[in-house]
Design a protein around this nucleic acid. Sequence first.
DNA 1: TCCGTTACGGTTGAA
DNA 2: TGTTCAACCGTAACG
Length: 200
Amino acid sequence: MSALAGSIPRMMRPTLAQNYRGGFPLEVSTPLGQGRVNQLGGVFINGRPLPNHIRHKIVEMAHHGVRPCVISRQLRVSHGCVSKILCRYQETGSIRPGAIGGSKPKQGATPDIEKHIEDYKRHSPAMFSWEIRDRLLKEGICDRNTVPSVSAISRILRSKFGGKCDEEEDEEELEKKELEESERRAKHSIEGILGDRCEY
DNA sequence: TCCGTTACGGTTGAA
DNA sequence: TGTTCAACCGTAACG
C-alpha cells in the first residue's frame, strides 16, 4: 500500500476512504453514529472540530514545552491537527475553531442600496420586497448583477424595521436558547462521547 | 523521527 | 421548505 502511495502522484492516489486500511477508520457507535477512530486510536467526528477540552489540552501541553509529536500521541490526535491548532493559536491567540458553514455575504446590498430600500419602505410601508427590487432596477440604483434578491431585501427590511413585534425576543431569551441548544448538542457531540474517555 | 503542508471527504449554515 | 455553495473541520500521507 505504501509502495502504491509512493509511486503515484497524490492527485492520482485512491481517495482517502479507499486509502484507509480496510476503508475508513473504524467506526464507533455513538448516539450520532458518526464517531470514527483514527490511526492513533483517538475518536473523532469527520468534519467536526475537536472538543474544546482537547484543543485546550493541546495548547496547554505545548505551553509546557511538550513536543507536538508527544501531544499528538498522548491525545491521540493527528500531528497535522496538532500543528494546525498550535499555528492558529499562535496567530489568533484563540483555541476556538473557525466559524463553520455559511456563505459569503452576497454583494449588492451596499449601505447605499440599503438606504434606498429603507426609504421606499418608509414612504410605502405596504410595498412588497419584489416591488422594491423592481424599483431599484427601474431607477437605475442597481443593475441586474448588483440588485439584491427578494429574500435579501426582506431580510434587510426585517433587520431595519424589526419584523413583527410578537416575533421579537430579547437577547437574554436568545442567549438562554443558545445555551440550551449547545448543551443539547454537547450531549450528542464528540465532546459528550469523549467526555469520560479523555481523562488525561 | 519530527513536523509543515496538502488533498480529501465530510459537516455546517447563510443565501 | 429544500437546495446550493463556500468555509471550515480532522485525517492520512508526502516530503
